[in-house]
Design a protein around this nucleic acid. Structure first.
Lengths: 160, 160
DNA sequence: TTAAAGAGTACGAAAATGGTTCGATATAGT
DNA sequence: ACTATATCGAACCATTTTCGTACTCTTTAA
């Protein structure tokens, strides 16, 4: 359905929340409480993020999780890579090759690969640090786009 | 999973195949045979595409489906709109509003909306006509796609 | 030694998806 | 008018994926 899973959504929430105090160590329970999520769910997401080297964990009493890198260096694409099951790709044959029933003569595949690149690039250009910055409401160069009434056009150039 | 459904994938296959002979009327059975798909599946996809005004149908003997518009005017984004269930959006709260448990103070939503726009734009910039063009032909839609008028500022500091 | 906190596994419910079937309706050709 | 052809529309079921939770084990600070 062209949608990220809820776990991935939670991952962005968690990382965004942590990015507001990048040096602090957060416990899974504290994050769950702050974000209104279940502790096991948060724990699961954090563990997976740890495998993706986006957070580091400290076990034992007074332990917890903290960001592995400055929030400017954590992109949305990396969160998706860490939390989504399959390799990145909008279609089956563009994520892994050798599965299509027609294979050759399928020029569609090349075009999907190109579309993938563009989408992925868009995701790589947004960092967790960007996500916590309030967006200018309703002004920007891309106002003529399709998506919903709440579409907020913003300039990524406000990052520095 | 950040992936389109197979039905949507079939939709692009079908429309792409039809775009090679834009004026012709195709029967569902003929398309299914040409593409190696089941007839009921193709029929279902075509019916849905008809609801999205991407193809027109002619009932009765010698009937079938034909493209509603020139292939240059049918974008991948429209195919997704027609075949995917939910409104376009990478996250729940960016597709429809009023569902998030935190709602206010959730600046993430604005950023997801922005990401959505970029992704959607990438999808809108690719037409069915583009999909049947072989890749390496010099002025292929590659540059147009990546360096398009609304492309993201691609080069920031490269992380990852 | 004790308690806090992460690690890992496993499970059940729910939802999405993919594919099919059946009957109804419309049209072309005889 | 009759019939073969072909779409239309809705309903149905099996499979897969996803979501959330629970339970147990390991690590480590106080």
């Amino acid at each position: 359905m062209l949608r990220i899973s809820k776990l991935t959504d939670y991952g962005t929430l968690i990382l965004t929340h942590m990015a507001r105090d990048p040096a602090r160590v957060f416990s899974a329970a504290g994050l769950a409480d702050a974000l209104g999520l279940g502790v096991p769910t948060v724990s699961k997401v954090l563990k997976t993020l740890g495998r993706g080297a986006l957070v580091t964990s400290q076990r034992g009493a007074q332990g917890g999780y903290s960001l592995a890198r400055p929030p400017q260096q954590i992109s949305v694409a990396e969160i998706i890579d860490a939390l989504e099951e399959h390799p990145f790709g909008l279609t089956e044959c563009s994520a892994s090759s050798g599965l299509c029933n027609m294979e050759d003569g399928c020029r569609i595949r090349d075009n999907w690969l190109r579309i993938n690149k563009v989408v992925r690039h868009a995701l790589q250009d947004v960092s967790v640090a960007d996500m916590i910055q309030p967006q200018g409401c309703g002004k920007g160069p891309d106002e003529h786009l399709i998506l919903g009434p709440h579409a907020v056009a913003t300039d990524k150039e406000k990052r520095a």
